[in-house]
Every structure is written in structure tokens, then in C-alpha cells.
Design a protein around this nucleic acid. Structure first.
Lengths: 147, 147
DNA sequence: CTTTTTGCAAAGCGTTTGCATTGAA
DNA sequence: TTCAATGCAAACGCTTTGCAAAAAG
């Protein structure tokens, strides 16, 4: 992790959750917070290994799961395939391409104040609320038109 | 499949998609349309085998994937674990329990006419639109209160 | 010094593939 | 008779586990 602010932020978080601060965790955290994708464990592994050649895939994967437990990242809901991780940020929503699987983030004021149905609100505790759109991304839409 | 209406409906669908009508497919279809769960391939397999002992897991799994391709079932978006299938019905939405993984269906008039953000509408083709709630189901909420 | 974390290897679980056989059209 | 669908077995990909060695607090 090059950035001092990031390092401090991360130390804070670890202390609060009773986690030890290891260079491996720092590397994973640093990568996550500066990438705007929805990487799989393998993808994170490959990138982090660039600046940290000794790290094992296993550590990366377990680190990501640990981060998910302390609420640092979300695990995306996908239709099979490898698990995808999403740094927790301001409330955003997802568009899924049914053709290539690409995920596009977006925000919408209109989706912020959705009313939760009475039945659910009465019986369940709702933590988060997300809109998921399924369709064709720009690239796949073009492909379909001119096959 | 016991029900005549179901059988006819299914024959129709197969013809339209160029699929052959096999007893195995009928069995899977019959089970799907009369269950109100979100079964995995294994679960469908175990149930169908009750009335169709020779069917293989493999056929069940491939049949479900085929059904997904012709739009007869949806593949649910989940956080890992085995794939779950959802019979396509009227527009419904999902509540996920973050503790036990239970999925609760619900409908809501309020979610029917959500406006799709301009940026997405301009660049993508949107097929479906779903709201996903994450939280604690009734049972897990109770457990948390009295641990 | 104690306890967590790491790295490695093996096991586990679910999905996918190839191919010969069977069955629908 | 033809071509798709089935059943089986093996391969595959990703995740999880167990454990000894290393590192953090």
C-alpha cells in the first residue's frame, strides 16, 4: 500500500475487528480500494502478486472472505462462476449483461427511497436494498444487431 | 406429469423451441411448475427420481440449463453455492437472508414501474428489473434476539 | 510467549465434457 | 432412418480444510 491515508484507515479497521495487520492483507486491501472492478479471488491474486510475489492464492482468497465478514467488501450475487467481490461504497446498483456477464455499476436517486413492502418490513430485518437490471451491455447489443 | 393442461403447455413450448418431448423433460417440468421453491439441480433430481427412478442427475441438470436458455426458468443470482433455479412467473422480487441463505419471494406494486436511469437506458437493452433485499429472515431475526 | 496468519497440499463439491447408446420424430 | 437426448464416467474449476512453519502483537 503506497498511500498513507489508506494505511491508517486500514489499521483502524483491523484494530476494531481484532485482526492482525499483515503485509498480505495490506496488499489486498490496497488493491481493492483502488480498483473499480468486481474482481474474483484469482484476479486479485494475479494483480497483487505483481508487487508481492510470495503471496499465495490461498491467502488472498481467505483475506477476501475475512474482509467480507467484517463488512469491508460485499460478495456479489451471480449466476454461478467464481465468486466476485465488490468494495463497499456508497449505495450503488448493478446492471448484469446476460450475454457476457459484465457488471456495470450505477447510482440512481430514484432508487434511494424505495418503500419496502409491509409484509417484509413486518417479518424481516432489511439491511440493504438493491436494484438489479438484466439485459445486454453496449458491446453485446451491438454484436446482436450485426451478427 | 399428471395434469393435462401442463402437458399441453409444455408440448407447445417444446415445439416452439425445437426441443424433443422426452419423459425426462416432462418430469422435470412438472416438478418445477408445481413447486414453490428455488431448488438446486440436486434437489430437483432427488424429487423427480421418486417417480422416475432411472433418470440421471446429469439429465436433470442439463434439462434445467436448457429450460433456462428457452426462458422457462431463471437462474438465481446467489453468493456462491450450488446454482438455484426459479420458475419464471409474474414479476416478483427476492429477499435474501444473509444468515441462512433463505430466499423469500414477494411482489410489490411499488416496484413495478421503476424508472431506468437515462445512462443505462441509452447504452444498454434492459430485459428485466428486480429489487433484491438483503437482511434477516423471521427465523434468523428471532435467533439473533435471544442467543 | 501466545495466538493468529500464512503457504502448501489434498480433499471436497458442483459443473462441464466426451462419447457410446437410446429414443423421439 | 436421422438426429437430438440420455446416461455414464472422467475431467475440470473453484472452494474449503488440515497442518506445520512463520509472523504479529
Amino acid at each position: 500500500m503506497q498511500n498513507q491515508a489508506l494505511t491508517d484507515q486500514f489499521s483502524e479497521l483491523c484494530k476494531k475487528s481484532g485482526l492482525k495487520i499483515t503485509p498480505q492483507r495490506c496488499a489486498v486491501y490496497g488493491h481493492l480500494m483502488t480498483s473499480r472492478n468486481h474482481p474474483t479471488a484469482v484476479e486479485v491474486y494475479r494483480t497483487v502478486r505483481g508487487r508481492f510475489p510470495n503471496i499465495s492464492y490461498d491467502t488472498v482468497n481467505r483475506t477476501l472472505l475475512t474482509f467480507a465478514e467484517i463488512g469491508l467488501v460485499d460478495i456479489l450475487q451471480t449466476k454461478g462462476g467464481p465468486r466476485r467481490f465488490d468494495p463497499v461504497m456508497d449505495n450503488h446498483h448493478h446492471f448484469y449483461c446476460v450475454d457476457c456477464g459484465k457488471i456495470i455499476d450505477f447510482t440512481s436517486q430514484h432508487y434511494e427511497d424505495l418503500k419496502i413492502p409491509d409484509r417484509i418490513r413486518a417479518e424481516c430485518t432489511v439491511f440493504t436494498q438493491r436494484v438489479v437490471l438484466n439485459g445486454l451491455c453496449p458491446r453485446c447489443r451491438k454484436k446482436k444487431r450485426t451478427p
